[in-house]
Amino acid sequence: MRKYFTDQLIPTVYALMALAFLYTPIIVLMVMGFNESRYNTLPFSFSLEWYSALAKNEVLINAAINSFVLALITALICVVLATMFVLGMKTLSRSMEGLFRSLIMMPMSIPWLILALSMLLFIRFLDLDKNMFFVVAGHVVISLPYAMLSLQARIQALDPALEEMSASLGASALSTFRRITVPALAPAIVAGGFLAFMISFDNFAISYFLIPAGTSTLPIEIQSSIKFGFTPEINAISTVIIGVSLLCLAIVGLIMGSSIENMIGGKKK
């Protein structure tokens, strides 16, 4: 009885409380998107007016498209860079490898605010106007570590004997790369690309400081609506974002099986 209490009941209740803290505001937000009240307050009466307003809101829709394209470009660049890096990484000396890796991982541990500012000053130093090139560059800098994490975990788990085996069976270097290395890395490439996409799509700080006037992304639009009078249209777009994110997560999860967990966990087994 006491064992049940300490081993089952308390842990379960504790976990439920933590999850409630994590999910309550998000669920409230989603529910309030279907509420008639303009001020996100009770009582609740069901309405789809905020969704129909959203459908007509071209500013938000354009911003969403911008964010999507930006994230896609960022993810593609990150995946190519990260794949090249992990393939070349093994030929570096140990100290070089360590140095390069910590350089690439650096943006994970520096506040993005600082990175965004320094790039803004860099643009000014070069006497340029704000432009999309630098926005993409900034997004790549902060998303690359995440793509790299995924690929590194995978390439370290990849048995070098596989490539040697392929070579000993008479495959050329190119054919080994195409038939052994790429398929082995594919799940990590997809997972890394997905992570980079999410980081870029969500990013506010870099875009906020670097984006040229007249252009905007979804996080920027959300932030400015919050600042200058928000309506449950924000709830509606938030719900859509959450829904789409979860859908993507589920799809990627189904395709990759456990590789996302492996990457985040980096389990030693």
């Binding site: 799509f201 969500d202 938030s238 974002i241 994110s245």
Partner: peptide, 8 residues
Amino acid sequence: PFFTNQLV
């Protein structure tokens, strides 16, 4: 929640 927008 990692995969939902931070601003949201």
